[in-house]
Write a protein that binds this DNA or RNA. Structure first.
Length: 428
DNA sequence: CGGCGTTAG
DNA sequence: TATTCTAACGCCG
């Protein structure tokens, strides 16, 4: 049987590339993008990496480097990144019969349909198309398993060679192994810090070592995930391409505040906003929830202030995606856990017990009304369509209203040039 | 089955 | 002064 051909397409420094699209002078400068609340660094340009700015580093720790080297600093602009990601994925969709969107900046493509000797050329065409149609540069790794295509992509980025595409398929086994020897175990997809520690304790330091490790030992002392990684390194594909996004089994919305919040009223406003957003996500995947968890927390890093963290859960009488139902329950839960006198840093909601909305509801006491349910769903569909057309939060529920003084800090966000008319790029 | 730990981006 | 957010899965009791 012919082995499968996996291509991993990975956008280069994706968030930075997005920012550069709308600001030409960022081209050769060091650029970083921050997490929510401008907390820590979540994306770095090549130049910023070279300066030694680390992934996940708190902003205040690299302030000196930023000033010294005039690093361009951006708050995260997810509206922009998601829109550009969608554009990249739609180009990729046209390049393969089987696309798996793995993350905002990565996708797997099956290239089973491409003749073996045309793979490199085809991958170059993919890169050029994406660049031409979206402006985003990408790297491509090609191999017989997902894990090896990750390795290939990593080698492209690490060595800045291969012209953006690395196809490992034609390589003899010894050549693959030679390159695997240069990859540390902790840099393999699926091997995190804990597994690395155990592997290193057994003298397994490189991807090559792991590929040749003893199966029985791996299974017994580690886990089945690690065993799959070993097989995948050997060229035995265990992880197929998943074309359809599985509906989420849990939906969480939780954001840290831009400043400490003490008032119940502000917490209600924030939680209502998060709940409406979670409900929207729920409806988008055609699901209902029947269990709600609400949580509340002070800032665990602020050792000097009194700490409090609490959560509460409750079940809905019947599964729902009707925002007012979820709001009622979420706010009631918030009231049970709220204690005055604390400086809260975060609240959030987590929806679980999620199931498809077409599964017919059985109700022991006859309280559930299919007619009312249908009316509610219709109302929410209207709200969602309205908001999709006129912009997020054009229509919203009363408890969300307020001045949003708690909203996250975003002092350096670029224009939402692709999703807001009033922020469109102007050329003068 | 729930809680915990690990990993990912 | 300052430290992201979301989701899945495996293991264990």
């Amino acid at each position: 049987m012919k082995p499968h051909v996996f291509a991993l397409v990975d956008c280069n420094n994706f968030y930075v590339s997005c920012e550069r699209l709308f600001c030409a002078e960022l081209r050769d400068r060091p650029v970083i993008v921050l997490s929510n609340n401008d907390g820590c660094v979540v994306a770095r340009s090549k130049e910023a990496k070279a300066l030694g700015i680390a992934m996940g580093q708190p902003l205040f720790q690299c302030q000196e480097l930023i000033t010294k080297h005039q690093v361009a600093v951006y708050s995260s602009n997810y509206a922009l990144y998601q829109e550009l990601s969608d554009r990249v994925m739609s180009v990729l969709k046209r390049c393969t019969p089987a696309l798996e969107v793995y993350s905002i900046d990565e996708a797997w493509l099956s290239l089973d349909h491409v003749p073996y000797d045309k793979l490199d050329q085809y991958a170059q065409q993919i890169r050029q198309r994406v660049l031409q149609e979206t402006g985003i540069p990408v790297s491509v790794g090609i191999a017989s398993t997902k894990t090896l295509s990750k390795v290939a992509c990593e080698l492209v980025k690490r060595h800045g060679m291969f012209d953006g595409v690395l196809n490992m398929l034609p390589w003899p086994e010894e050549e693959v192994d030679a390159w695997l020897a240069g990859i540390h175990v902790e840099d393999i997809w699926g091997i995190g810090p804990q597994l690395s520690k155990k592997l290193r304790a057994r003298g397994i330091y490189s991807a090559r070592n792991l590929k040749l490790a003893n199966h029985a030992w791996i299974r017994h002392y580690l886990n089945v995930t690690a065993q799959r990684v070993v097989l995948e390194l050997q060229g035995v594909s265990c992880l197929p391409i998943q074309i359809y996004a599985k509906p989420k089994k849990g939906i969480m919305v939780s954001l840290a505040f831009g400043r400490p919040v003490e008032e119940l009223g502000e917490l209600e406003e924030a939680l209502s906003t998060y709940t409406a957003s979670a409900a929207e996500t729920l409806r988008k995947q055609h699901s209902l929830t029947s269990q709600i968890h609400v949580f509340l927390q002070t800032n665990p890093f602020a050792k000097h202030i009194p700490q409090y963290a609490m959560s509460a859960s409750a079940s809905l009488p019947f599964a729902s995606a009707f925002t007012p139902d979820l709001l009622d329950l979420a706010l009631a839960l918030l009231h049970t856990i709220y204690r005055p006198g604390y400086q809260y840093k975060r609240t959030g909601i987590y929806l679980t017990q999620i199931r498809p909305h077409y599964v017919v509801q059985r109700d022991l006491f006859g309280i559930f009304s299919p007619e009312a349910f249908a009316r509610q769903m219709q109302l929410m569909t209207t709200v969602d369509e309205f908001n999709r057309y006129w912009g997020r939060n054009t229509l919203y529920f009363g408890t969300q209203a307020g001045c949003k003084a708690w909203f996250m800090k975003q002092t350096r966000r670029s224009q939402r040039a692709t999703t807001r008319w009033e922020e469109i790029l102007t050329v003068s």
